[in-house]
């Protein structure tokens, strides 16, 4: 039985007790699989699973509070769910988790850059390559060149929290140490302060304030009452200036310190390619260093900024 058949079977059995199940369906081309709601048995025929299922469905859980929801998760998505459980945003009893072992998802922007395609009619995966048929032309590229960056360094391909695990767990692509080595982070770390300041100024200048980053984030659940939109207190002006745009990214990053599971949805959602995940990755490294903590692993843990120790092992005492 194929993995998808097994998944459909598990959902079919669970559906009568659920209001809906969050899954992915076929999109306008073979490279896109938008999220959708499975409410009836017949909706299951649209369900797909594969490297084009990029969206983190946990972003929707906040909207669905009070409902009994099923959710299909990849390893990284499951970490967001764990974080939401920790923070008591979702209730474990009203959630059924279908875990899919994941070998990585596509970065459509990378594909657009690597292959000159107009309309991906068909997509096939075999032996580490992806073969895309567009018009009457078929071209292929190595999968590792078009997988999302996060997947190349993923060491949580299997969900840690689930009700149904479909198929066999897969081996992590890299070790935890290798996962920590990140060329984009190293590049930023290699700059001096002036260069970094200029780096952010250039990137933030492009920002449209569309808040796709915020709204795609599974943990940015205050989105309708976000302080970026608040007029009183007046945190942000409406002016489209670097100051306001950058300030928002600082808000986003600080509010995710010790909570971000690095699912990368913020950066993926950005239409103008601002590398906003860098700030979060850096803060995660800081949190790991200071509190030896990684978000989204243990549903019973307390995020480090929601607690304290009287004697902090890794914070130096202030002299003056």
């Amino acid at each position: 039985m194929s993995q998808l058949t097994e998944l459909k079977e598990a959902i079919r059995k669970a559906l009568p007790d659920l209001d809906l199940v969050l899954g992915w369906r076929e999109g306008y081309d073979a490279l896109h699989a938008p999220p959708y709601h499975i409410r009836r048995q017949e909706d299951l025929e649209h369900l797909v699973f594969g490297p084009m299922c990029v969206n983190n469905l946990a972003s929707q859980l906040m909207h669905l509070r009070g409902k009994k929801v099923g959710i299909i998760v990849k390893g990284c998505d499951a970490r967001s769910v764990v974080e939401l459980l920790q923070e008591k945003i979702v209730n474990r009893e009203s959630l059924v988790i279908f875990a899919m072992p994941c070998k990585g998802v596509l970065d459509v922007k990378k594909i657009r850059r690597a292959l000159d395609i107009d309309h991906a009619r068909e997509v096939h995966f075999h032996n580490g390559t992806i073969e895309i048929t567009s018009g009457d032309k078929t071209s292929s590229v190595e999968l590792k060149d078009v997988l999302a960056d996060k997947c190349l360094r993923c060491h949580y391909p299997n969900a840690t929290e689930y009700d149904h695990f479909i198929g066999e767990p897969v081996e992590p692509r890299v070790s935890a140490e290798e996962a920590a080595a990140d060329p984009a982070m190293e590049e930023l770390a290699g700059m001096d302060l002036t260069e970094r300041f200029a780096f952010w100024k250039t990137h933030m200048n492009r920002c449209l304030r569309c808040y796709a980053c915020r709204n795609s984030c599974p943990l940015c659940f205050c989105r309708d009452v976000c302080l970026a939109d608040s007029r009183d207190p007046h945190w942000q002006s409406q002016e489209t200036s670097v100051r306001e745009k950058w300030m928002f990214q600082m808000i986003h990053a600080m509010h995710l310190a010790g909570r971000c599971t690095q699912c990368g949805e913020c950066e993926r959602a950005c239409p103008v390619g601002i590398p906003i995940l860098l700030l979060k990755k850096h803060l995660n490294a800081v949190v790991k260093d200071l509190f030896n903590y990684e978000a989204g692993i243990d549903p019973t843990a307390t995020p480090p900024l929601f607690t304290f120790k009287v004697e902090e092992e890794n914070i130096k005492e202030i002299e003056l």
Partner: peptide
């Protein structure tokens, strides 16, 4: 409409990239 928007995250991207969306806000800063 709920079915049609199951994938929508309520961001402003579609309207900000749209060549015909003309809605505006007026604020005193």
């Amino acid at each position: 409409w709920e079915d049609m928007t199951a994938a929508c995250v309520s961001c402003n991207m579609c309207t900000y990239l749209c060549p015909t969306c003309y809605c505006f806000n007026i604020t005193d800063e």
